[in-house]
Computed example of a mutant assay.
Amino acid sequence: MSSERWSRRRVVGAGAGALALALAGCSGNSPPVRRLRLATGPEGGPYNAFGRALAQAVTASGGALEVVPVSTSASVDNLRKLEDGSADLALAMADVAEDAALGREGFSRPAGVTALARIYVNYTHLLVPAVGPVRAVGQLAGRTVAAGAAGSGVQVVARRVLAAAGLGEGPSQAHERQLGLTESAKALRTGTVDALFWSGGVPTPALSGLAAELQLRLLPLDGHVAALRERYGPVYTAVTFPASAYGPTEPVGTIGVGNYLLARHDVPASAVRDVLRVVFDRRRDLLREVTAGARLEPRFAISTGKVPLHPGAAAYYRSVYG
């Protein structure tokens, strides 16, 4: 081989190597952005606020990940979106998430849903005007109740509570109206419903606003926890509203339900780890408005009942906490 030909081959090889290194450098400096759609809840609700805050925190982290919050009707709707592939991540109440994972109640077959973390506890609110005659859930027989929007976890827990109290059917049946939080608060204020169900953190800003206009009474629900646990398992717990949660009241016992951050089973493990890293780094900001029920810590976060942890989530917890 001539020295000229050898020199040419070396130059071409060196050029190709330099090009490969340059391309590798470009790809290393500008990795493709992975976009994950997060099913949240209705505008103005806590899921929607959490989703927006998480999306902003992920962007601020500077990684190659983008979370896009999607407004929905909340828990049931969110599980449907995970199932049909129109969402990658979702927020949902633990009872609905277990229904989906087990293929029970409104889900005809088990859904491929996994958990990233249990993020906080919802408190079941059953509110009536303080000046009215209703002091216990059983006194809602024949009355009209705002029982959550269609496709929401509020509707699920409201129907289960009413059934446990003997008000689900028959002559004592309470009359349900499917209303979102804003519409429910307006209906209670104007007297077009006699009671309002809600499941969320404490305080819920919309209800704090309502309490500033209308003196409210929280009805105790902790007496129904045992019956719900017997039928649906430990997704339901007894919790207590702090004194003066929505005005001058004593502590009131109610039903607690966890909230899960969920993912489709085929979301890459690396993306799940990146999301969880942001969740735990920014947990105080994400739950800034939740003063009761905020327990985003590893031992609590991995308690997702019959909803399996995503493999990426399990790997994250092992790597960080052992």
Rank of each mutant, 00 (worst) to 15 (best):
L286V: 14
Q178T: 10
F241G: 01
G132W: 00
A57L: 06
L23R: 07
S270D: 01
Q155W: 07
V137Y: 11
R229H: 00
G256Y: 03
L228V: 09
G322D: 11
E297A: 12
R135K: 14
R189M: 07
V307H: 11
L287Q: 02
A313I: 10
T190R: 14
D194Y: 02
R295W: 09
Q173P: 12
Y123P: 08
V193W: 11
R282D: 00
P110S: 12
Y316Q: 09
A101V: 05
V68M: 02
S208M: 12
G153F: 03
P42R: 04
A243P: 10
V235T: 11
A147Y: 11
L286W: 14
L167V: 13
S7C: 12
N259F: 01
A141T: 08
A271D: 09
S27Q: 02
F197T: 10
A292W: 13
G253M: 01
H125W: 13
T204A: 15
L216P: 10
Q178R: 09
A301R: 10
L181Y: 03
T144E: 15
G103P: 15
L287K: 03
G63K: 15
P242F: 11
V239L: 14
G223I: 13
R37I: 06
L219V: 08
E230I: 01
Y236D: 07
M93N: 04
R52T: 06
T59L: 00
Q56R: 09
P248N: 14
C26A: 04
G233Y: 12
L79V: 05
G45V: 01
G253F: 02
F241I: 08
P311V: 13
R80L: 04
R318D: 08
R264C: 07
P205C: 06
T204Y: 15
P220C: 03
